[in-house]
């Protein structure tokens, strides 16, 4: 009986170490990905896959723009539409090089990051259905 207990503990420890190792690798990959794309997360309440989607979308669009000419409105529009389509309404996006903000956002729907010298605020708010009574 004791042998079985020890075996269970050994397996449990082994699984925990595997999970920990996987987490560490994922964090390292995320860090490398951010470094490579020149992204810095300033504030965040958002799952990693959504964050990465925002970074990738912003990076692709910035790369497609002529250098020295930032079309911040286009970047904001694209990110907003992308997230509205994929994750439901209502997302809001502010893009610029100098702005302050104070917002109320839905749980898990907020990220503020910089990419190159551009700052991006992307957040979600709850949508109340229109009362047609």
């Amino acid at each position: 009986m004791e042998g079985a207990q020890e075996e269970l503990e050994r397996r449990s420890k082994f699984l925990k170490s595997l999970i920990q190792k996987k987490k560490t690798i994922e964090q390292q990959e995320q860090h490398d990905h951010l470094q490579h794309n020149n992204v810095r997360v300033r504030a965040c309440d958002m799952p990693l896959p959504l964050q990465n989607r925002a970074f990738r979308c912003a990076r692709d669009l910035l790369d497609s723009m002529p250098s020295k000419k930032l079309d911040s409105k286009r970047l904001a529009l694209t990110l907003k539409k992308e997230f509205d389509t994929s994750y439901g309404p209502a997302w809001h996006c502010i893009v610029g090089t100098s702005f302050g903000s104070y917002v109320t956002h839905s749980f898990g729907g907020f990220v503020y990051f910089s990419i190159d010298k551009v700052y991006v605020l992307l957040f979600k708010t709850a949508v109340e259905p229109l009362d047609h009574s």
């Binding site: 809001h92 100098s98 702005f99 302050g100 104070y102 917002v103 109320t104 605020l121 708010t125």
Partner: peptide, 25 residues
């Protein structure tokens, strides 16, 4: 230069005066 404080002040006041859910940049 205190952009966040200015935004916070306006947002909070609007929430108080006109109901919650305002955003300010």
């Amino acid at each position: 230069t205190e952009a966040i404080e200015i935004a916070r002040f306006i947002k909070k006041e609007f929430d108080r005066m006109h109901g919650p859910g305002w955003q300010c940049m």
